[in-house]
């Protein structure tokens, strides 16, 4: 029966390997290259594990296909003419595994993994400058000037810019892109305000809370212990914080999120 069947152009084992490699490359192409949002390694391992299982299932559910898949491996082990190749494979494969294990077990200076939430749910109210602020209704006291008195608004933005350059740009960058001179030394990285996913998604009161209480003011799920954001209420005045917030939105062109328009 098998003699009548034409041998496939590509051996089954190679086919399987190509399919798996193709799917992996597809993931990489789509998520890393096109979408610029790579799949985290921990998830990728599991994805590929089940992809490999699936490919194995498809390639072995008929007896003939399974035989063809295993034929090269069987030949390698049993065929006396491939003795040299066998010896090479039997040395190289375990050696590769050993090398992989060796590097995997190397201690590294990478911090242990933490489940970190960057924009944690804010508390409904918070104590800043000895006063209690209700974050749900708190608004930037200068925001109304944008319409009422554009000139004064621009002045305040300029003041905010100065506050920013004196205090913030070292980490968050002079282009507000999170790439200041010190940014490389920090982990987690300083926030990139230009990104549509950061301040554009937040209310001004959230920024006020984050700036005033800094890293230590984060709730537990946001790992306050690894954030290096200072507690700015100890260095800046309330007015300065509001002004710098004006500047952040003005420079990046984002609009603060507001519940009224939704």
């Amino acid at each position: 029966m098998s003699t009548a069947v034409q041998k496939p152009v590509i051996p089954r084992l190679l086919q399987a390997a190509l399919v798996i490699a193709g799917i992996y490359a597809g993931f990489w192409l789509i998520f890393d290259l096109i979408l610029a949002q790579p799949i985290p390694q921990s998830l990728m391992v599991m994805y590929m594990f089940f992809v490999v299982s699936g490919v194995f299932m498809v390639f072995t559910f008929t007896e003939e296909s399974a035989r063809q898949l295993i034929a090269p491996i069987r030949a390698l082990v049993e065929d006396q003419t491939k003795k040299t190749l066998r010896n090479v494979v039997f040395i190289v494969v375990p050696a590769l595994a050993a090398v992989a294990v060796f590097f995997q077990l190397q201690p590294s200076d990478e911090a242990p993994l933490e489940l970190r939430s960057i924009h944690p749910a804010p508390p409904s109210s918070v104590k800043i400058f000895g006063k209690r602020y209700d974050l749900m209704s708190l608004e930037n006291p200068y925001r109304h000037l944008e319409k009422d008195d554009p000139e004064q608004f621009q002045e305040l933005v300029a003041v905010g810019g100065e506050v920013y350059i004196r205090n913030c740009q070292y980490c968050h960058g002079d282009k507000l892109d999170g790439k200041g001179p010190y940014a490389q030394g920090l982990n987690p990285v300083p926030l990139n305000f230009q990104d549509i996913g950061t301040i554009a998604q937040l209310q001004e009161s959230f920024l006020f809370w984050r700036i005033a209480t800094g890293g230590p003011g984060l709730p537990k799920e946001a790992t306050p212990w690894i954030s290096s954001m200072p507690i700015w209420q100890e260095f800046l005045s309330e007015e300065e914080i509001w002004q710098v917030i004006l500047y952040l939105y003005d420079y990046t062109g984002h609009r603060p999120r507001s519940w009224e328009h939704e």
């Binding site: 749910a121 804010p122 409904s124 109210s125 209700d134 749900m136």
Partner: peptide, 13 residues
């Protein structure tokens, strides 16, 4: 009673 769940009324006020 939190801002995100919507399971119970917020208590801040």
């Amino acid at each position: 009673h939190n801002a995100v769940g919507g399971r119970a009324p917020p208590l801040d006020r």
